[in-house]
Computed example of a mutant assay.
Amino acid sequence: MEKVEVKELLEAGVHFGHLTRKWDPNMAPYIYMERNGIHIINLYKTAAKINETAEAMKKIAASGKKILFVATKKQAKDIVADKAGAVNQPYITERWPGGMLTNFVTIRKAVKKMASIDRMKKDGTFNSLSKKERLQVDRQRAKLEKNLGSISDMTRLPGALFVVDIKREHIAIKEAQKLNIPIFAMVDTNSDPRQVDYVIPANDDASKSIDKVLSIVTSAVADGLNERKAEKSDKDAAAAAPAPKAEAKKAAPVAAQEEE
């Protein structure tokens, strides 16, 4: 896993915080200075925190658990959908469905409903409905897809959450805290870092900054998934290995008989 360079973070504008009057005093340890009424984040601390976060996320991915990415703000949505989707992790980029974690059973029912509509379309049941009913089902399917499409493969609660902008996603944060699900997050100078297990002090408003941080952490997730894959194929190979030896022993007496 590559170590993060401060220069890269600087170029992406990760260091720009909020206006000083909007700050949360708990972010003081991560603030380097004030410039033109804006807080500047200490990128050496950011780099260290990104490395720490990436390492932890890599372990979670390697263990086979999913990391749910949450970002509903305009400048983060597409980046999160793209990066999380690329490493096969679930994400929420529309509206956080209340009870997504604390009432996971209900959310699973909605996902199953989506799957049953898909089955209806495949087996032809859908075509036997009236035009009005078909329209209603289609609308329902589109709504479910919009809100839950990216989590349709999530059959159990995630191993962790990765959040962009904890102020905006406060409901998601509260639900994860209730269930003791670890929270990774990009935290800007206007937010309280005490709500998060792994804090990445960073500009959570600029798409370049969001893109940079997400590229690093999702690359760590990919490393974890590859490790898991390699381990699995090693295990499979080990399990299959003894079989040929047994065959060789069986074959030996036959060969001996032939020589006689």
Score class of each variant (00 low, 15 high):
residue 23 W to P: 01
residue 143 K to S: 13
residue 237 A to M: 07
residue 159 G to A: 14
residue 193 P to C: 06
residue 235 K to Y: 03
residue 83 K to S: 01
residue 24 D to Y: 04
residue 117 I to V: 15
residue 82 D to Y: 02
residue 238 A to K: 10
residue 164 V to Y: 00
residue 220 A to S: 10
residue 52 E to Y: 03
residue 76 A to R: 00
residue 9 L to P: 09
residue 238 A to L: 10
residue 73 K to R: 14
residue 78 D to I: 05
residue 114 M to P: 01
residue 153 D to M: 13
residue 152 S to Y: 01
residue 126 F to P: 10
residue 222 A to M: 15
residue 203 N to E: 10
residue 139 R to E: 14
residue 159 G to R: 06
residue 188 D to M: 08
residue 252 A to P: 02
residue 167 K to A: 07
residue 103 N to Y: 07
residue 47 A to G: 13
residue 153 D to W: 00
residue 20 T to S: 13
residue 257 Q to V: 10
residue 256 A to D: 08
residue 169 E to Y: 01
residue 233 S to N: 10
residue 38 I to Y: 02
residue 174 K to F: 04
residue 111 V to H: 05
residue 6 V to M: 09
residue 59 K to P: 02
residue 181 I to Y: 03
residue 176 A to E: 12
residue 141 R to G: 00
residue 241 A to M: 10
residue 232 K to V: 05
residue 193 P to V: 06
residue 48 A to G: 14
residue 74 K to G: 12
residue 176 A to D: 13
residue 236 D to S: 05
residue 67 I to Y: 00
residue 150 S to Y: 00
residue 198 Y to A: 07
residue 183 I to Q: 07
residue 230 A to C: 00
residue 17 G to N: 08
residue 55 E to L: 13
residue 184 F to K: 07
residue 10 L to M: 11
residue 81 A to M: 01
residue 225 L to M: 14
residue 128 S to P: 01
residue 217 V to E: 02
residue 87 V to P: 00
residue 122 K to F: 09
residue 166 I to C: 03
residue 251 A to L: 13
residue 111 V to T: 07
residue 31 I to Y: 03
residue 35 R to Q: 04
residue 88 N to M: 02
residue 113 K to S: 08
residue 141 R to H: 12
residue 164 V to E: 03
residue 17 G to T: 11
residue 189 T to R: 04
residue 70 V to F: 00
residue 105 V to N: 11
residue 114 M to W: 03
residue 161 L to M: 12
residue 62 A to L: 00
residue 74 K to A: 13
residue 254 V to M: 06
residue 131 K to L: 08
residue 201 P to C: 06
residue 255 A to N: 07
residue 26 N to Q: 11
residue 82 D to T: 14
residue 197 D to P: 06
residue 216 I to R: 01
residue 54 A to M: 07
residue 170 H to D: 15
residue 107 I to E: 09
residue 230 A to G: 03
residue 134 R to L: 04
residue 71 A to V: 07
residue 88 N to F: 03
residue 229 K to E: 09
residue 224 G to A: 04
residue 58 K to D: 09
residue 212 K to E: 15
residue 88 N to G: 09
residue 124 G to W: 05
residue 164 V to C: 05
residue 120 M to C: 04
residue 15 H to R: 04
residue 80 V to E: 00
residue 187 V to L: 08
residue 83 K to G: 00
residue 178 K to I: 14
residue 218 T to Y: 00
residue 47 A to M: 10
residue 152 S to L: 02
residue 14 V to K: 02
residue 107 I to V: 15
residue 209 S to P: 11
residue 191 S to M: 11
residue 251 A to Q: 09
residue 78 D to R: 06
residue 13 G to E: 11
residue 171 I to M: 14
